[in-house]
Amino acid sequence: MPLLEVENLVVEFPTRRGTLTAVNDISLHIDEGEVLGVVGESGAGKSMTGAAIIGLLEPPGRVASGRILLEGERLDNLPYEKMRRIRGKRIGAIFQDPLTSLNPLYSVGYQLVETIQTHTDMTPTQARARAIELLTEVGIPAPERRVDQYPHQFSGGMRQRVVIALALCVNPRLIIADEPTTALDVSIQAQIIALLKRLCRDHGTAVMLVTHDMGVIAETADRVAVMYAGRIAEIGPVREVIKNAKHPYTHGLMGSIPSIGHDNERLEQIPGAMPRLTDIPVGCAFNPRCPHAFDKCRTVRPDLLPVEDSWTACWLYDGEAGRTIEASKTLVAATKADALLERNHG
């Protein structure tokens, strides 16, 4: 049984101009010890998905339908108090800005000890020892001294480590990390990514890594879900999605990332912009920007179909449409990712 299962999740925002659907019928699962990357551009609904799972949707946002199961237990309909306990104990959260996740008025140690004592019955001395142990584990030098310092005395990267330590306090089964490296410098980013990966391996914690940065996903995730306009466009093993993108959107997204060593004068670009939630096109939401769109794309919404090792929501891969997988593969062949693969392994 997967650790986390999300089935047909729909997140809505009722506004006075009508209800906006931020997350529209997505299903995914995360296994124990697995890192699932969720990528997408702003407005794709990736953060909303994370927030729905930890029950921190900002009102008036709400889970309109679907189920969220953690180790077989429904989370989506739990009362606030119960959810709060699960959030502390079984699901940890790491957000983009470490400063807002820490209370500036209390020392780092106090915050760690408080969290530990809320969820376990350790004595204050034990809890403090555990706090120092956690700080050591996330790579903070001189933890015995640092434990009594305040958040402002830590640099950005160190703060994010403290936030990770807070999330790890009670050995959660799942960590939702929403853009954990976005606010950090590249060299610090790499340190945090390595830390997350190591923790995942050592503790068997599953991570849902929400980010816009394909590079971070490539390095960290085992599987990746690409989101577009509130839906999953493609989901599969990270190598498969990056090097052998199926969905035209994923494909365009990959092409638009500049990368060192590629001397193309122009980047591939997807015309237009992601639709606003108020006017998501009928059929496949990507159809107005898709170079391969045909009639069916403009009328019928595609569901995820298995293609090779991954799943993709695209009519190009639907046999009935008169296009075989092979044909569509040539359509999206000669990709930059393929070239990369050759360069690295050929």
Binding site: F13, T15, R17, L20, G43, R276, L277, T278, D279
Partner: peptide, 8 residues
């Protein structure tokens, strides 16, 4: 939240 497009 998404901004709602106003007509010019």
């Amino acid at each position: 939240m998404a901004e709602i497009r106003a007509t010019p």
